[in-house]
């Protein structure tokens, strides 16, 4: 499938302007500085960085929540610039997002069935019966039960809520799914389940992921390509093996060094160092 580019981003900028007031001068903050990348159909691009590096701003631009200041985004040949053209239903059906915090991303007063049907209700002319059938199918597909259809979000655990959020995002069968730290609020065992689910869905539906994360071990497990961001700029961009085996930029190296190692060899090394010091 190589060469089949589904997401094409060129020279993307996002500038936040604060207005001048009586007491303050106008300031501008560039959250994303000239980012360019391609993602191929059915693959996963991981965007790695720490807080304030612009990765969430990038996600918001890709999913049409915010407009870009300059530069171009193209999803499956369809240019996206919501400041100029607005958002069409067609655009919306191509890109969807899953948020980090499953406790905040579901409306507490909306039953699960309504959560899942909302995208269909708003973007298609599907009759109610068909919408319900699709929602029920989707519940099973993400590993939930049909009886969950009529329940409220607070009756679910974090992992189940994230399954619901994923189900909502793929109801419209988008081409591109932006995952904004989808597992970092979850427990380890649940994290594994969600990562498995994401892999299964990708295989089954041919989804393309932009996976935003700060957790390198998750990135290594899931991604095909990796992009490291630092203060709004891309400092490293390559295939997973290139980046993990031979990081080029100092920041990437620092990031790898700071990641806790949970293997026996590292523990041995640490304990030996400690014994020496004592």
């Amino acid at each position: 499938m190589s060469g089949d580019t589904i997401l094409k981003v060129r020279d993307l900028y996002r500038v936040y302007e604060t207005k001048a007031t009586m007491f303050r001068k106008a300031k501008s903050l560039t959250a994303v500085k000239g980012v360019s990348f391609d993602v191929e159909r059915g693959t996963t691009l991981a965007v790695v960085g720490e807080s304030g590096c612009g990765k969430s701003t990038l996600a918001r631009m890709l999913t049409m929540i915010d407009a870009q200041s300059s530069g171009s985004i193209e999803v499956d040949g369809l240019p996206i610039n919501i400041a100029k053209t607005g958002i069409s239903k067609e655009m919306r059906q191509r890109v969807q997002i899953v948020f980090q915090n499953p406790y905040g991303s579901l409306n507490p007063r909306q039953k699960i069935g309504d959560v899942l049907e909302e995208p269909l209700l708003l973007n298609t002319d599907m009759p109610a019966v068909e919408r319900r059938d699709l929602a029920l199918q989707m519940l099973q597909k993400v590993g939930l039960q049909p009886e969950h259809y009529g329940r409220y979000p607070h009756m679910f655990s974090g992992g189940q809520r994230q399954r619901i959020a994923i189900a909502r995002a793929i109801m419209l069968k988008p081409k591109l799914l932006v995952l904004d730290e989808p597992v970092s609020a979850l427990d380890l065992s649940v994290q594994a389940q969600i990562l498995n689910l994401l892999k299964d869905l990708q295989d089954e539906m041919g989804l393309t992921y932009v996976f935003i994360s700060h957790d390198l071990s998750v990135v290594r497990y899931l991604s095909d390509k990796v992009m490291v961001m630092y203060f709004g700029e891309v400092v490293e961009y390559g295939t997973r093996d290139e980046v993990f085996n031979a990081p080029q930029h100092d920041y990437t190296k620092k990031l790898f060094a700071a990641t806790p190692q949970a293997d026996v060899a590292s523990i041995r090394k640490r304990l030996a160092l400690k014994a020496d010091a004592a």
């Binding site: 594994a192 389940q193 497990y221 949970a262």
Partner: peptide, 28 residues
Amino acid sequence: FERPQNPYTKALLSALPENATGDRLPTV
């Protein structure tokens, strides 16, 4: 980390993505 005795501990350790051996992560 070397010889976890309890099945839950084993599960936790193998659910770490860095310890992933196959295509799927084992879950608890």
